[in-house]
Design a binder for these strands. Structure first.
Lengths: 185, 185
DNA sequence: CATTTATATCTCGATGTCAAGATATTCGTG
DNA sequence: CACGAATATCTTGACATCGAGATATAAATG
C-alpha cells in the first residue's frame, strides 16, 4: 500500500507564500544563517518550533481554562485523576510521571486542590509511606467541563491541517517523544 | 514532481511496535477513549505531544546549557541579540516578541544579565522612552559556545527521524505556528 | 534479624514569571 | 499646536516551580 504525498508536503523549492505563511522560526533560522554561516542550524527548524508552539498553546489554554475557573496546572492534575477511571485516585508519584513536575511541586498542587475541595488525600492502605489522591465529585465535573472546552479550542487550532497531516504530525512527534517517555530520562 | 512516501509515514493499521514505540500520549489518549468514549480526543494526539515534548526539551536544554554556565532564559536573550548581528543590540520590546515573555519578565532578565556583564543598557538615541540592550563581547562568546552545544544535542534527538521526515515535521509545525506568529496573538 | 539501600512523600528557601498598573514619551487628529 | 490615544519600559506583589534535603517506610542482602 503506497500513498501519494499531499502536494502541500512536497520538498520543492518555491516561495513560502505558495504553501503557507512564514513564521518566527523562519526568521530566526535565516538570521542564524546570516550570522553563523559556518553552523548547520537545521535542528532548530523542528525543535524551536516545538518550543515556541508549546508556549503559544500554554497561553491559549490558560484562556480556555479561565472560563471554567481552572488554571492549567489544576487541569493537568484533575484530568490525570479523571483518566484513571473510578474511583479516580492515584498516588502522588503516579501523578508526577504524568505531569512532568517535581515532587515538591506536586505536593504543593495537591495541597491547593484539596483546599479548594477538588481532591482529597487518603492514606494508601497497602503502603504506609504512600498517599492516594482522589478526585471529589466536584473535581470530576470541573475536569470534564474544562476538557470539552480545551478540545474545542484545539480543534480550531488544528483546522490548519488536513486529517492526514494531523495523523502524520502525530506520528512524527511520537517518534521524538517515545525515547523520553520510555527510557527513564 | 511526485514523491513516494517513506514507508514509516504510511497510515496503516498495525501494531505500533512495528513502526516505533508507544509514548505517554498514546496511553493518555487510550485512557480518555475508555473513560469518555463520547468525546473525540484526536486533537490531543498532536497538541499534547507538542507540550510534552517541549517540557522534555526544556530539561535537556537546561543540562546542555549548564555546561556553559548559562540558564535557558539567558541563552534565549543572548542569542536573540547575537542573531541581530553587529552591533548586537535590540530594544526590550523586540526581545519580547522573540522570547514570548512579558515585559516585566524581560526587564528582570536584562537586569540580571547586565549584572553578570553579559549585556549593557544604552539609551535609544531616536526615542527617549526606549532603551537598547547590547551584547558585551563576553556575552557574545557565551552565546556562541552554548549554541554549538545545543545544536549537537538537538541533532542527537532528531536522529530518530530521516532527513525527509525532519523537513515534513518542520513544515507541519510551521502551519500551526504561523497564525500565532503573524496574527498578533 | 540487622543493616543497607531504595522508595514515597513532604519541607523549605530561592527564584523566575506573570499580571496589572505606573510613568514617560511619542503619535495621530482636528 | 493641543490633547487624547498609543507605545515603551519599568515597578510591584502574588505565586508556582524547582532542587536539595528531611523523614518515614519498605525491600534487599547477608
Amino acid at each position: 500500500m503506497i500513498k501519494i504525498l499531499d502536494v502541500k508536503r512536497l520538498h520543492i523549492d518555491r516561495p513560502l507564500t505558495l504553501i503557507g505563511m512564514e513564521d518566527e522560526v523562519d526568521r530566526l533560522v535565516a538570521a542564524w544563517r546570516r550570522e553563523r554561516p559556518d553552523l548547520d542550524v537545521e535542528p532548530l527548524e523542528v525543535l524551536s518550533r516545538v518550543s515556541r508552539l508549546a508556549r503559544h498553546l500554554d497561553r491559549a489554554r490558560r484562556l480556555a481554562f479561565s472560563e471554567h475557573g481552572l488554571e492549567p496546572w489544576e487541569f493537568d492534575v484533575l484530568t490525570s485523576l479523571r483518566r484513571a477511571g473510578a474511583p479516580y485516585q492515584l498516588s502522588p508519584g503516579q501523578l508526577l510521571t504524568q505531569t512532568l513536575v517535581t515532587s515538591g511541586t506536586m505536593t504543593n498542587r495537591i495541597d491547593r486542590l484539596a483546599k479548594k475541595g477538588l481532591v482529597e488525600r487518603l492514606p494508601d492502605p497497602s503502603d504506609r509511606r504512600g498517599v492516594l489522591v482522589r478526585l471529589t465529585p466536584e473535581g470530576r465535573d470541573r475536569a470534564d467541563q474544562a476538557l470539552a472546552g480545551l478540545l474545542a479550542q484545539e480543534r480550531a487550532i488544528l483546522a490548519q491541517l488536513s486529517q492526514n497531516q494531523r495523523g502524520d504530525l502525530a506520528g512524527l512527534l511520537r517518534q521524538l517523544t517515545a525515547p523520553f517517555d520510555n527510557i527513564p530520562g
